[in-house]
Design a protein around this nucleic acid. Structure first.
Lengths: 97, 97
DNA sequence: TATGTTTTGACAATACTGGTCGAATGTAAT
DNA sequence: ATTACATTCGACCAGTATTGTCAAAACATA
């Protein structure tokens, strides 16, 4: 199962960058990027978009990965997760109208 | 479409309580309960369970309502909501194993 | 050992959330 | 219109969580 951290670590390694370089380019502390890659910290939306741009990844792909990590994390202790997701889906659909 | 606030307001009105009374009983400030009922603030999990007990509502029903409100709120600005929910579902399934 | 990369952990700064309380507003009866 | 009561608003405080910074530790590799 993929996650945000794996995606950006993979992208970095494929392109042969060091944390130091990415940090300088995106103006994000390299320790933080290290933590992002290991899913130890959650980036902000702005940061997600910075990564997408820099690594030339699809914005949507990365945003979905990031948001779903967050949702899954919020529901991890809940055995009601299925019901919650279905209910949330309905609510979102309803709001759109 | 239902939501946490409507549920507890309805329950209170059906049983003919005033905010003041519920507040005293549950030891929650009545202004806060008012805000809960209007979905202006999110209660803690403990508070959700207090309401369920006091109004004799099903714990699970209320918890699902509360959690799905939160998830829907987090995704409200995202047109990627569908994809996010599906991805989150997979992640949660995966974690269970 | 020496050099370069990544990870860790302590700390500060900031933002977010939840609680408190008095004032303001709304409502209905007299 | 005034009174009495219920609800809502808004400003403020406190506790918690999140994010950023930095230097030292750990990890590799030559």
């Amino acid at each position: 199962m993929s996650n945000f951290g794996d995606l950006i670590r993979l992208a970095r390694e494929e392109k042969g960058f060091f944390l130091r370089q990415v940090a300088a380019e995106l103006e994000i502390d390299q320790a933080i990027i290290s933590k992002f890659e290991r899913n130890e910290r959650k980036p902000t939306k702005e940061q997600v978009l910075k990564f997408a741009k820099f690594y030339k990844l699809d914005n949507e792909t990365l945003l979905v990965e990031w948001l779903s990590d967050k949702v899954a994390y919020d529901l991890q202790d809940e055995n009601l997760a299925d019901k919650v997701l279905k209910a949330a889906e309905q609510k979102i659909k309803y709001k759109k109208k």
